[in-house]
Amino acid sequence: MTHEQLMASAPSYALDALDPTERAAFEAHLAGCPECRDAVATYREVAGALAHAAVPVEPRDAAALRERVMREARTVRPMGIVTRRTPNGSVPVRPTFVAAPRPPRRLVPWAVAITSLAAAAAFAFVYRAERERSARLSSELTSLRAEVARDDSVLAAFVGPEVHVVSLTVANAKPAVRVFWNHTSKQFIVTSFGLQPAPPGRTYQLWAIRKGQAPLSMGTFAVNATGRTMTTLTVPPAIIAGGLIDDCALTVEPDGGSPQPTEYPRLVGSWRHVD
């Protein structure tokens, strides 16, 4: 496709209206075409101006909405403010990643205990009432044990003395991503649930943070339509060489990942040993 043909798609691109294959072709061209990048920037300004065509509408409760805006913003900003002392005083600098406060400890152990008790009671009832089925149940149990044994290799990656884990979350929310670091196999295992898939052309990227140092990429991953993944990443040599890391952060980056994060972290967490 010629430059002129692609240029004709710039307004549609600026409106996010290109279909995925067209968008991919246009973005490939955009990377090497300053003229099209300028055109897209101009059309984005036109799109921004379009907001002023909408008829002004007063919110139902302006004060309550302003309060909500401020409150919701506080829940997503996982950053601390870092200041650098200079002879002239304290100057704000681009914050380095700082872990968000941990959410309150959840009551999962209780839930597990209650569920287990219920299951045990149910099993006892079944056993008494349907003794004749016990042989078949026993056989099924043997089969289940065999399945568990087959999964041992998977489980080994998650537990053991050489595994660290980090839960990535925002304040007051369930963790959306957990990363297990198996030092023996030199692997990160990334699990997620309820994580919105990254927009087209973009990918999730994890960052290892050592306090006072630039973030190191741990790798990229994608989630399925339901927000789940179990992705194994090889631990990069630079991370192994530096020893333990303090924190972990998640950003959304252009496909293929970035050398350094291009946005504030969406989720952060601190590493801890599996116990």
Binding site: R60, L65, V69, A73, V76, E263
Partner: peptide
Amino acid sequence: EAAVASAFADAWRSAGA
């Protein structure tokens, strides 16, 4: 209301970019 609150939260989060 939900959209505006979410958008300003996004702005707060991504202001550095």
